[in-house]
Write a protein that binds this DNA or RNA. Sequence first.
DNA 1: TATATTAATCGTAATATTGCAATGAACAAA
DNA 2: TTTGTTCATTGCAATATTACGATTAATATA
Lengths: 110, 110
Amino acid sequence: MGLAKSEMFTDHQNEIALFAKVFGHPARVSILQHLFKIDSCVCGDLVNEIGLAQPTISQHLKELKHLGLIKGNVEGTSVCYCIHRENWTAMKTIMSEFLNQDLTYNQDCC
Amino acid sequence: MGLAKSEMFTDHQNEIALFAKVFGHPARVSILQHLFKIDSCVCGDLVNEIGLAQPTISQHLKELKHLGLIKGNVEGTSVCYCIHRENWTAMKTIMSEFLNQDLTYNQDCC
DNA sequence: TATATTAATCGTAATATTGCAATGAACAAA
DNA sequence: TTTGTTCATTGCAATATTACGATTAATATA
């Protein structure tokens, strides 16, 4: 019904899915890569960098902020965004554990 | 418009997003974890393990298979699924690089 | 104060995703 | 051949996501 039955799964599984979901759009991947690349904080020129309209970028930034992966600082009329490093590291731990779960055994069966 | 403008982004960004998207649902996270945990190949008892209906599980398996992360083998009336290890490793390289891009510098700006 | 700039929010249209009942296809066993 | 088992596919309803024009809010500047 278009609604993920998240109550059927563990908190851990839902957390992995939530992080993955936010990376599941190339615009958000692009925003994060840009925030990592630029060593000074990027503000609204993400709109110019990426080709999407301002409300669209703003919406993507909101989702990234909601998950805690970025933080925004108001500077005059513009807003400066950057990676929230502590939260990024915490996310990375969770996602890496999920990606690396195959290291325990190595028997292929089909 | 509900449609990701993937032509605006690089192949690499789209690839990351595609992998992430498939992990963006707890049912698929759960299926993958189960396939990793069970050292013999699990077939249709994924339906019993996870609480979703058979067509729903089948649909999730299809998406995982489409991305190459799992493979299925017909064994009589049942189908045996397991992780596609080579493709999983390749995916892991791409995703890990994305997750680890913060290691280069460490200045927080906002 | 009036005007410009920047970014968030609202409203809405188009499309995608999720879930399942019903059905179908393939095979095994009686 | 008939029956049962297992899984894929179809069709559809409910909900979510994406994108953007229009507007609003906040601040800076003339």
